[in-house]
Design a binder for these strands. Structure first.
Lengths: 354, 354
DNA sequence: CTGAAAGCGCTTACAG
DNA sequence: CTGAAAGCGCTTACAG
């Protein structure tokens, strides 16, 4: 093993670097910024010196002249769900393609205030929020950003006041799923973990109701939920427990619609361990279309979030707002999810009385 | 819904802010930096004005004076594995606790060069790598950092030349697992996906061999691998396929050791679908101790990466190197993993001939 | 085509 | 206890 390289001549400024190559700082700056009309020889000399010394201009001085930082702040509500992480990775990738750096912050327990202050002190060109935040809090942060004429975008969370938003149209996703299941002859539906006051949950319930209404069916008559019987913990275990509760009831629904893929897979395990076959006896559908849909037997039918489309749309949106006066009204764009049919859903079993 | 707040008086510099509060820039700066010996009234006046205007000092000017940026660059090899993401989140949290910001970059397809240049231009105080990189490439990046007198740390990847490293001692983890399984009476072991030239794989094989040797047993006689029969795709499916291949052989091993939790869970499904009971007929152990260990029945025995300890150690390491002359020799610290016994491992079945 | 000078928004001795 | 002046590392008119 050769010895570690000692720090050779470390060059820390254009001034030092200019004297190293024997040119004026101005000339060096022009080469660095790719200005036209320089002698080819000059350009080459500078480029070679950069290779030799590894000189990197100080970004802090660079942006001090009022130049845009070309940096986007990304505030993640959490990093614990696979879809959120995928969005983050894709977002950074897309921003890089369009010559923007990203400044990523995971929401600290104390809340979003310090994150936004950091973004502002770093003079980011815009801020993107990903996840589901406390509405009152994120609304306040967005007002702060608007005060500072900094564009923003909320991904995922519909309904934040004043907020430019790109969000999944969960209602339409559920409507599509219901149309599919109704077409397979299902008339009774078990709801798994689709409960609570959160907007994303209410949207799903509205979609389910609309899907039923399109067939002249009522929500109350056709759906059943047993969520009140359980305290929610790990999603997978929760799905299994819910399934077992349904099995213990009489007149078990023929189709089950879950909050997410984890709950759905847990439920499938629960049904199977009780001797029910999926999809011959009960159909089960998830939500998010994560990789884990390919883990269980049978493979899980799910609803895809269209992450690429969401992120693409978001990048277009947010970059287009930079340097523009704020919109008079927030811009809200809904992304249509996509039903991915696999093996966990099938025709409704014939009624026993038939 | 009330109207969106118009951008009120936006203050962009200490100069503007100073005139707003009617003080000299110097005084404002002193309050901002918490210097002692100021009139209480002055401090309060400034703080109130900050609340009113939301003024945030420009970080780019702030650090131009040669002050440390108090920012650590974090280069992630990928964001596709749960342990990597957990390390990232924990690392940012710990750094924040110690008053450091983080600049996160996911490795682009083009490689690490532009990432490091970005870090250098942002004058980060140190760089942390998380994941498994192409050794030659990361080694070159580290040499670059050393040239610039910027401390670095590699998390996870043992053996990078010149690199300060904090890595999991996979060999000792496997040795511990083997001691446990040997204690349960197992004498024949199936290896699942523990194959290839990667250092992390070789470390595991060395640990398995050492564990066997401690009982006077030979590696070749006691272990079997069928990885050559399959092309690796999705880890879960791969585990299932491997299990089915083992079932098709005669003299199936009594204990199975997997590369990771996904492979182990897939294998358990494979064994169970072939009518074998876990752990009565075969024991199965995973690696990483992810949340998904709690998903299958029975719960999966696994080896915990000790992420908190790893990150804590790393933060101590890297922060202690800032502002110091580089070490003459790289500092390598190994983290001891921890065996977490659950329900998927049990006593070896009695031999049929007994 | 290249260089000397001013200025971005801060902090920090140095005076008062 | 507070203020005027210099300087951090760049870029950009403005001259030559």
């Amino acid at each position: 093993m050769k010895a570690a390289p000692g720090p050779k001549r470390v060059i820390r400024s254009t001034a030092e670097f200019a004297s190293y190559v024997g040119l004026a700082r101005t000339t060096v700056s022009r080469v660095l910024n790719g200005h036209p009309g320089l002698k080819t020889q000059t350009v080459q000399r500078v480029q070679q010196a950069i290779e030799e010394t590894g000189f990197t201009p100080n970004a802090y001085a660079l942006h001090l002249k009022g130049k845009r930082t070309a940096t986007i702040g990304i505030c993640m509500e959490n990093l614990l769900t696979a879809p959120a992480v995928l969005k983050l990775a894709e977002l950074q990738r897309r921003l890089r393609e369009r010559s923007h750096a990203s400044l990523i912050e995971v929401l600290p327990p104390g809340g979003s205030r310090e994150v936004i202050r950091h973004f502002l002190s770093m003079r980011v060109d815009a801020v993107v929020f990903i996840g589901h935040f406390v509405e009152e809090e994120i609304a306040r942060r967005i007002d702060e950003l608007m005060t500072h004429a900094t564009p923003h975008l909320v991904i995922d969370q519909r309904g934040v006041p004043h907020a430019d938003t790109v969000a999944l149209d969960r209602a339409s996703g559920m409507r599509e799923l219901m149309a599919y299941l109704l077409g397979l002859g299902h008339r009774s539906f078990g709801l798994l973990a689709i409960t609570g006051a959160a907007r994303s949950v209410q949207d799903r319930l509205a979609g389910i109701e609309a899907g039923l209404a399109a067939h002249g069916l009522g929500f109350a008559e056709c759906t059943r939920s047993l969520d009140h019987l359980h305290a929610r913990q790990n999603d997978f275990e929760y799905g299994r427990a819910l399934a077992l509760s349904f099995v213990a009831e009489k007149n078990i629904p023929t189709a089950f619609v879950a909050l997410n893929d984890e709950v759905a897979i847990g439920a499938m395990h629960g049904f199977q361990s009780a001797g029910l076959r999926v999809p011959q006896d009960v159909s089960v559908a998830g939500f998010n279309n994560q990789d884990i849909c390919l883990m269980p037997t049978p493979l899980l039918t799910s609803i895809d979030q269209q992450i690429e489309l969401t992120v693409n749309t978001s990048v277009d949106q947010v970059l287009s707002q930079i340097g523009r006066p704020p919109r008079p009204h927030p811009h809200v764009e809904m992304i249509a999810p996509k039903l991915v049919v696999r093996d966990s859903t099938g025709p409704a079993p014939k009624a026993k009385s038939a």
